[in-house]
Nucleic acid binder design. Sequence first.
DNA 1: AACACGGGGAA
DNA 2: TTCCCAGTGTT
Length: 344
Amino acid sequence: MTSPLGAHPSAAELLAWYDRAARRLAWRDAAPDPYRIWVSEVMLQQTTVAAVGPRYARFLARFPDVAALAAADWSELAEEWAGLGYYARARNLHAAARAIMAMGGFPTDSTGWRALPGIGPYTASAIGAIALGEPLVPLDGNVERVVARLFAIETPLPAAKPLLGRLADGFTAQPAMRARPGDFAQALFDLGATICTPRSPACAICPWREGCRAAARGIAGELPRKSPKAARTALHGVHFALLDEAGRLLLERRPESGLLGGMLALPGTPWRAEPWADAEALAHAPRTDLDWQARPGVAQHGFTHRDLTMRVMLARVPELPEGVPLDQATRSLPSAMKKLLPLL
DNA sequence: AACACGGGGAA
DNA sequence: TTCCCAGTGTT
């Protein structure tokens, strides 16, 4: 297909490269079934292959099918997802599993998947192409970068996204793509991850070098351009560590919305721009009848758009039946909360 | 359209 | 340090 911006390169050539150079990844081991692909795609949202690698097999062992996932309590899923970030993904995965059980089975096309919580345009297309064989090109960060370079699109993201999507869709006109849509999508991912990388792309060994307008102009490494993003702002909080003589720690479940939504955490003040004085923070302590001691030092944790500084205040009681043993807390807490434990 | 939402690996 | 990752949901 020829677009106003020029011809698309050959899907067949990319697939031939993929047949030689495909990465070996856990979710490619078995024949693609909807559950395994769904879980892998959600886990991979804004998360690197390297980070997902050790977690994917563990998740499937604990929740081997959609029935097991739907039957699980949220606390089990929260524990399994702890440390992976973007916890709304786990909440939506859980809600979607229960919706699938209620419907009596998986949606049979990408449009049906798109209606489930946590399934956006990208994930619906990826499941459609990889698990269902639909001729779709999922538009993820890799594909945006590859297409922006192929056609030398200088418009910055995110404004360029609709155009990049139309250009990506142009590949569906090629019979080679339509014969293997799942492999074609994954070939684009692998090309973006291993050759057409964000910086210093390896154009010399790229199977699409000849048709790439950015490579021809020597600007591949500069594309795609991006609009400047908002700066990080500071947040401060004080958290309360209540320990008993058996080494149990008081934890609470955070509200579903907001940072670390639905996850376990040490009780604490709200997080705000100004630092907290001890006396002021104490009004938020889980118990005000105890002798809270400020611990030395702070824990720093960077979120996408926030830089959080936390202090800890410690108190001890003889017996805390609702407390969580420290080793279990280490397993169940999100990373920001784990950083508080060394301050105890 | 802009923002909220984690965490880690690579340059 | 900064960048960016097999993005989605809310406002």
